[in-house]
Design a protein around this nucleic acid. Structure first.
Lengths: 310, 310
DNA sequence: AATAAGTAATAATTTTTGTCTATCAAATTT
DNA sequence: AAATTTGATAGACAAAAATTATTACTTATT
């Protein structure tokens, strides 16, 4: 059994076709046929059911593919181990970002980062906190940006910035006339929330819980984007809360609806998180430096009270 | 990079000597030299410091060896995956057993098991619960026998038997005259305990805690074996508690000092535990059958109250 | 200091393996 | 029925891995 053979198996399993898999692996089709046959012979099982069109995995085949993924994955980390030691900043870097951070933070640092570290090939994915934790632990991500603290034993956190919550209040709302708002002013029943799965939603709920136990009505409008929430808010359906960086993109007209909290303002903690194995720590360091440098200009320091995202 | 090269690296790292490693891997020494050089060239680092005698790993080398272990380990599991599917019962089976179970249970089932499943090559290690959990998760063990429940997310448990605690009371002791004892009779301050690290010790402490919060004196005799505890007990240093199976080996004279608990007797739950990946499930099944069959004859069913081992 | 033993690297050679081109056979599509 | 797609097979060849033989160096031993 060789790593090459396993890669061939993975390619064929993915494309369900020897010829296409051969192209992708830059060898000829007979090479794949023979090497896979050799592996099947060695293990004394059939990995593929070639009678089906397109080709299918056998039931053992599926398990073998899983194990092959493990092996190939681990083998690809060998180069990371070496890069780590050399202090080389480059190679593939897979990073996950939660949806409520993605659109504001990404444009801010992406250009700077890629021009400063051209050898790093970024692969960015928008993922929920839950998916991020899972993928970090499985080794499918090198790092992620998420709201913290997460209290995950095998994941390290490095705080990038504290992002205050800002109220967005429609003119009809009871809080519109106030200059500054307090967390005790909030009532979960008239706050528009993001849909389930967003940790910013959970943060808001925690914030309200902290002041008073507001009952969550069965019927409540929820949306996947802040833009929609703002529009719904204008329809008089209630106020909403935005993360500070999002408020920077609003029109002047919209800015008039913003109401900041009295200090200490409730805020979310946004961190770069990564597995304790600390592979690619140099790239993580580099990204930390770039992002915190940029955000330092965008968020003035203030006294905040961190709201848990979970 | 090939799996073979990694195996060569591991062999040299283990023996700190190319020639010996070559013998162990059944190739000639130049083969190792060349293949390892090739790998070093590919990764563009030195794995071994050949100037030292005996040869040493470089600092990158150590990390590479770690990663190589991962890869080789995973690759060796491929055969397990296949065996699993074929229902083949054989191959290497690495099992860990806690010290307080080892001497009583092992002789009971070992003969039966090996004669029933001659193709299984058992590798048995005596380990603490902590070490067992660690090794199971790292893939260095296929299964283990330990006191449960452990509430480990990634480990499955299958109860083998419930083993009552039995008091061993010296003649001078206040409880010697009682026919049956109660957990409320116990006082941690006059019970001889195994030394730290044994989960049976923790079980006893939990049992006493459950009845009353006895203060643990600073000076307390502790030992690594029940045999010593019994001797110490005879010296009038206090009573002790034994797991039921241990009491079967005692002399008639010693048996006179045994005092059983009123039902429901406190007991420990002993289980065979294994990773959720469930490789080698057939062998685990087989072992479960053999052990629980044997123990069924040795421990009569009774009403018990399980004491947590952690 | 000379010699022997041990150890890893190197060179030359042989063996094995991986890949390629060319071709075939079966299945699928037109 | 013909054409196309797809995977298996055969033979040739190059690359890679392993072997034997040898060298260079270090460490013990006399």
């Amino acid at each position: 059994m060789t790593i090459t053979q396993l890669k061939y198996v993975l390619a064929v399993a993915e494309h369900q076709n020897f010829t296409k898999a051969a192209e992708k692996t830059f060898v000829t089709q007979p090479t794949l046929s023979m090497q896979i046959q050799k592996l099947e012979e060695e293990l004394d099982i059939l990995i593929f059911d070639r009678s089906k069109k397109p080709i299918e995995l056998t039931s053992v085949g599926r398990k073998i593919v899983n194990q092959a993924k493990n092996i190939v994955n681990e083998s690809e980390r060998m180069q990371d181990v070496v890069d780590q030691e050399k202090g080389f900043i480059g190679g593939e870097f897979r990073i996950g970002i939660i949806p409520t951070v993605m659109p504001t933070l990404l444009p801010m640092f992406l250009k700077t980062f890629t021009s400063k570290y051209p050898k790093v090939h970024l692969k960015i994915e928008e993922l929920s906190t839950e998916e991020i934790i899972h993928k970090l632990l499985e080794g499918h991500l090198d790092a992620a940006i998420a709201a913290t603290p997460l209290q995950q034993e095998k994941i390290k956190e490095r705080v990038l910035y504290y992002e205050p919550f800002v109220g967005y209040i429609p003119e009809s709302h009871r809080l519109f006339e106030k200059k500054k708002i307090l967390s005790t002013d909030l009532d979960l029943d008239d706050i528009l929330l993001l849909e389930d799965g967003h940790c910013f939603r959970d943060g808001v709920i925690n914030l309200c819980r902290a002041s008073k136990m507001a009952k969550n009505d069965a019927f409540q409008l929820e949306s996947g984007s802040f833009e929609t929430l703002i529009k719904l808010s204008h329809e008089g359906l209630g106020m909403t809360l935005l993360p500070y960086l999002h408020t920077l993109d609003l029109s002047e007209k919209q800015q008039k609806h913003l109401r900041y909290f009295e200090e200490p303002s409730p805020a979310r903690e946004v961190s770069i998180i990564y597995p304790k194995s600390e592979l690619k720590l140099q790239i993580i360091d580099a990204m930390y430096q770039v992002i915190s440098g940029i955000v330092r200009g965008a968020i003035r320091f203030q006294d905040v009270k961190i709201i848990s995202p979970i």
